[in-house]
């Protein structure tokens, strides 16, 4: 972005007003990020660093901590439940992200290019307005094998009753389905906001050149949507790896451990066991490392910091 059509103002070494402004950027930059920096250090960085330290201790937060070196890490790496929880988490992400993102893009494009009805936009965001704990309870009710309306409907049309949350083979996909329901409209609105930043003139020019809607989507919409799409993908993948609320309500990690994702595993260490803070934080550090890796790959691959829009202007 810096290479394109940058006027002299951003080039250091210039004299007078321009140069002074450019030099001020350092001070200004720090000034602008100062409030957020305080919030970040106090509520994110310090607790996170403390967590890393705790992960080398055996500690229940109440009695004295005992330094145990890497023992907590050895514990989780030799725990089959931990490895299984990683595998379940990845399965969940694989169900959740592709379906949710594709649906969100389709809905957003539809809302922007075809309908433009604010009523439809309002409807699509509705599921996100419901707290996720309530959403989970509602779906437990709707998907119940015997009393749930969905199953009564499935039986009537001859598909037959599905256990959904109660079947180890369906449970994780069912949880993914519930979260897709809640989040697709939300992501669609974010993507929609991104679509609105694409200048209409580009489509007009493309139409004049004879490109159809499909070609316009691949040639203009998708490339120019990249910053927003990266944002949606990065945040929803991170969120998806940390799936917890729906499972806590709907399956509590069951049946037979089929929905024990990594956060459920961590939660169990703290609240279902004797506040195994060391093990819980060690597992969190591992999850953190995984997420960092995934995010770096995503941002590198998708060139998050750049916009193709500049190329068109």
């Amino acid at each position: 972005m810096a290479a394109i059509k940058l006027p002299a103002s951003s080039q250091p070494g210039q004299s007078g007003l321009i140069g002074r402004l450019a030099n001020n950027q350092v001070l200004l930059g720090y000034l602008f990020i100062l409030p957020s920096m305080i919030g970040f250090i106090v509520f994110f960085a310090l607790p996170a660093i403390r967590s890393v330290i705790i992960s080398f201790h055996e500690w229940n937060l109440l009695t004295d901590a005992e330094f145990v070196g890497l023992a907590n890490y050895q514990d989780i790496f030799s725990d089959d439940r931990f490895w299984r929880s990683l595998q379940i988490t990845v399965t969940y992400v694989m169900w959740n992200i592709p379906v949710q993102t594709v649906l969100a893009v389709v809905i957003a494009v539809f809302l922007e290019r075809i309908s433009n009805s604010s009523l439809l936009r309002g409807i699509m965001i509705l599921p996100w307005l419901m707290p996720n704990v309530i959403v989970a309870m509602l779906f437990v009710w709707l998907l119940d094998p015997t009393l749930g309306l969905v199953n009564i409907f499935l039986q009537n049309i001859g598909i037959g009753k599905q256990a959904f949350f109660g079947d180890p083979n369906q449970a994780i996909a069912s949880v993914a389905g519930v979260n897709i329901w809640r989040h697709m409209g939300y992501n669609a609105i974010l993507i929609y906001a991104g679509l609105k930043t694409i200048p209409r003139s580009l489509y007009e020019a493309a139409t004049v050149d004879g490109a159809n809607l499909w070609e316009q989507f691949w040639g203009i919409t998708l490339p120019l949507l990249r910053p927003v799409l990266v944002f949606v993908l990065v945040t929803s993948v991170i969120g998806s790896f940390q799936i917890f609320d729906t499972i806590a309500v709907a399956t509590e990690g069951g049946p037979a451990g089929a929905t024990r994702t990594i956060i459920v595993y961590i939660y169990e260490q703290v609240f279902e066991r004797r506040i195994n803070m060391g093990v819980a934080t060690a597992a969190s550090v591992v999850l953190f490392a995984i997420l960092i890796t995934v995010t770096i790959i995503q941002t590198r691959y998708l060139r998050a910091g750049q916009s193709d829009l500049a190329d068109y202007q």
């Binding site: 437990v140 009710w141 119940d144 094998p145 015997t146 009393l147 256990a163 109660g166 079947d167 049946p255």
Partner: peptide, 20 residues
């Protein structure tokens, strides 16, 4: 008895009350 996967989510009490 109903399958256990049918009982877990809403509980035996609700199935009983539903006349199952």
């Amino acid at each position: 008895s109903p399958a256990f996967s049918d009982i877990t989510s809403l509980g035996a009490g609700s199935l009983f009350q539903a006349g199952q």
